[in-house]
């Protein structure tokens, strides 16, 4: 009765994967990376979180404003006119210039200054996070993979550094660099690198610790051992096998680190060790504004608001990313 020809199905070892005992994962369709992203869990959890969408929109507006500050700013804050000074929001100055968010005592439009300030905040933030990431990930990978005294040395240095607050380290690095290089004509350009380095240096420990932890886990996984059995050089194993598998949490730390870096930059500038007052950064703006908070309230208020919006949106994005990438919370 059995029609044997109907059974000649070529399935030798190629049937679909079993779903495991747990709620089965839906079959993954094969598609390009873009399509995969919009099909993926990340996009799905993004769509389902209105707060995250708002944060992303705010962040995007800030980024666009900062990147195109030169085009968007109604005035050039680098060449202020004293006659424009102290115009209140929605006011017109003696020169007949209209300022939506008012102007400061040098005659810089607050909106324009904020846009240029955001540019500085974002670039210092990004560069210092990048610096911290490269340093921290590299050292963490090395410590986790090599183990032994390399690990002990790197992690003790990290421990010592962690016991100093980030601002203190940044102040220290900043002070030392200034002392070494002296007051230069191109102080503003120098300030950028000093800030980037000092903030970055205060942030690397977190990356190193996280990466070391994940590396310790990955190192003992069998795919790394397989690479060792094949005879792959340890450095290549670290870079090609371990690194791609420990970057998930790094992305989350980097996002939250960006917010910290931006605030640290503002703090340092506020304390007078960052950018010179001639360069509008959010920190210097707030600092100037708070001296005249009684009369020209709008300077500190709007700069502060911009800083809060930036830091908050980045933080919210970081929180979402952390939850979305954490399989336990899914």
């Amino acid at each position: 009765m059995a029609d044997s020809s109907a059974t000649e199905v070529d399935i030798a070892g190629r049937a679909a994967p079993d779903p495991g005992g747990k709620p089965p994962a839906p079959a993954t369709r094969r598609a390009g990376p873009v399509a995969r992203f919009f099909d993926g869990d990340l996009w799905y959890s993004f769509k389902r979180s209105p707060l995250t969408i708002v944060a992303a929109v705010v962040f995007l507006i800030i980024v666009i404003g900062a990147v195109f500050a030169g085009l968007l700013a109604p005035h050039n804050p680098l060449t202020p006119m004293t006659m424009d000074a102290r115009t209140p929001p929605f006011g017109t100055s003696y020169m007949g210039n209209y300022f939506i968010l008012g102007s400061d005592n040098q005659g810089r439009g607050v909106l324009s200054a904020i846009l240029y300030g955001l540019q500085i905040s974002l670039s210092v933030g990004l560069c210092s996070v990048l610096f911290a990431m490269v340093l921290g990930v590299g050292l963490g990978l090395l410590a986790g993979y090599m183990g032994g005294w390399v690990d002990a040395l790197i992690m003790r240095i990290a421990d010592i550094q962690l016991s100093f607050p980030a601002i203190l380290i940044a102040l220290l690095v900043d002070g030392v660099t200034r002392e070494l290089l002296g007051q230069s004509q191109r102080q503003a350009d120098l300030a950028f690198w000093v800030l980037t380095f000092s903030i970055g240096f205060s942030l690397w420990v977190q990356y190193a610790r996280t990466v070391r932890g994940s590396t310790l886990v990955e190192r003992n996984k069998e795919y790394v051992q397989a690479a060792r059995v094949i005879g792959i050089h340890p450095l290549l194993i670290m870079l090609r096998h371990v690194l791609p598998n420990v970057t998930g949490p790094v992305l989350v730390i980097a996002t939250i680190g960006l917010a910290i870096a931006i605030i640290t930059e503002a703090t340092l500038s506020f304390l007078g060790v960052g950018f010179p007052p001639t360069r509008p950064s959010l920190g210097t703006l707030i600092q100037q504004g708070q001296q005249v908070l009684g009369s020209e309230w709008w300077i500190a208020t709007f700069s502060g608001l911009a800083l809060v919006l930036l830091a908050l949106s980045v933080n919210l994005l970081g929180d979402w990313l952390r939850d979305a990438l954490n399989p336990k919370l899914r």
Partner: peptide, 17 residues
Amino acid sequence: HRRVQMIFQDPFASLNP
């Protein structure tokens, strides 16, 4: 290393994802 190879226990951990 070329002549000696290994097969591991956990098929979910032995391939780089």
